[in-house]
Nucleic acid binder design. Structure first.
Lengths: 255, 255
DNA sequence: CGTATCCTTGATGCCTCTCAAGACGGGTGG
DNA sequence: CCACCCGTCTTGAGAGGCATCAAGGATACG
């Protein structure tokens, strides 16, 4: 199974129909990316060492904890994961939500310890990518390094955007930004971008956005009153993306 | 000059007396680190291509802007720099302050464009590190890649801590965290850690911490009343580090 | 069908922002 | 060398956005 995936030929970067987007071969699946860049350059059998285990985590299970010795990076095939950091007195800050096709845990490669914790939001299937031989492999596969840098670079950009959001935006702008970004990422991974089911609770969203759970509810209600979105529990339909985007940018207010 | 620096032999990581800590050779200077890891492995003359220009920026001058094509990374020799990101409607979020011995602009290597802007807070001398030949060099210098990953990894950790601060901490905890962290970094670079001069304004600090300038002033005043610190304009003396640290952790309150 | 979890809405209070004004200090030009 | 000026810092008063506390309703799961 692993070998089959790894030896898959690089394909064009054109849009893939959703049906053809099997989790591990998805054009924007992290693992695929990691493999794509090295394909054809070296003996691909080496890559069997990279993608080893598949595993499923149940809702609430930890993929890794802060400070835990590095085991592997994780490419999500199905489900979703939240990552968070902690204060010494127990407060939690959710730092990100991760959907199929995304990779997490990469920056622990250098530190040898995870610097945040990751918890499955629902039943989640991942590829674990043990990188114990990372240093040697990197010597042979220059493209691998580039991919690593790219993924970490993206994370830095995301974190900077979050700092901007947490430091400068109002509640409505934060929620609008959240929906717009989630929508964009779903689209990038070939999934419906205007109607989807949230895998995280209002409480998680609030924690992520630096808001109280109740504030999240109230803002969502306001959005519904203005027909920006409609919701039913965790099912969300984005009605007016343009106005949402304007709100997210701060270039409009919800009059 | 450049060659001399580059060909410098690796030295022990023991503490260096402050006097011996010339900016570019400082044990924790970013450039030194970049060079250290590659020293002795390859033809060092290659490294002349890495560290090319020295340049001085005046207070308020931009090192680079958001979206500008990648020119170089910057190792600060003397002075200080702030980095910030912008909302579309012009709001600014300061994402970091950088002191001598630290490197910035690295993650633009992959994107080919800077993802934040950097501005000198005072007269600042930097080494510009043009990485146009980065990809080739990385092939020959595996240690270089590792250093890049380490620096980016540190930035991710810092950003995560900032998200925690911006999302969950109160004004007093934020200021305490700011002073403790700055002190730690100054110490790491062999400078006085309990008495120093801030290069940034109250307004910059407030922006960085997600607070209004006035709130920064008021909290500092409160700290002085409790004898945690003493200040005179931008000169700061940390009087009770233990209590500051307790505040920063959230495991104490300013009664 | 009961129970736990999640979501929603209301009332109240507080932390921090905003607006305002004055003090202080450093730099500059006469 | 002094006086002026402007940026920065400080403190006060008031307002507001969001957190907190509280309670009821909806949904999923065993």
């Amino acid at each position: 199974m692993t070998a089959a995936v790894v030896r898959r030929k690089p394909v064009s970067r054109a849009n893939t129909p959703e049906g053809a987007c099997a989790p591990i071969a998805c054009k924007d699946c992290g693992i695929y990316h990691l493999c794509l860049t090295v394909g054809g350059e070296v003996d691909l059998s080496q890559l069997d060492l990279l993608v080893k285990n598949r595993r499923t985590y149940k809702r609430g299970e930890l993929l890794y904890r802060i400070g835990e010795p590095y085991r592997a990076a994780f490419a999500i095939r199905l489900g979703s994961v939240k990552t968070s950091v902690l204060t010494d007195d127990g407060r939690v800050q959710v730092t990100g939500f991760h959907i199929p096709g995304e990779v997490l845990g990469l920056n622990a490669i250098i530190d040898d310890r995870y610097n945040c914790e990751a918890r499955a939001l629902e039943t989640t299937s991942v590829c674990e990518v043990p990188f114990e031989r990372y240093e040697e492999l990197a010597l042979q596969l220059p493209g691998l390094q580039r991919q690593m840098l790219r993924i970490m670079s993206q994370e830095i950009v995301h974190n900077q955007e979050m700092m901007l959001l947490l430091g400068k935006k109002k509640a409505e702008e934060r929620l609008a930004t959240f929906f717009v970004n989630l929508s964009r990422r779903l689209e990038r991974h070939g999934r419906p971008a205007l109607e989807f089911k949230l895998s995280m609770s209002r409480s998680d969203i609030g924690n992520y956005l630096g808001l109280a759970e109740e504030t999240v509810c109230r803002v969502i209600t306001r959005f519904e009153e203005k027909a920006l979105i409609s919701t039913e529990r965790r099912l969300v339909r984005l009605g007016q993306m343009d106005r949402l985007q304007a709100l997210a940018r701060g270039s409009a207010v919800l009059e």
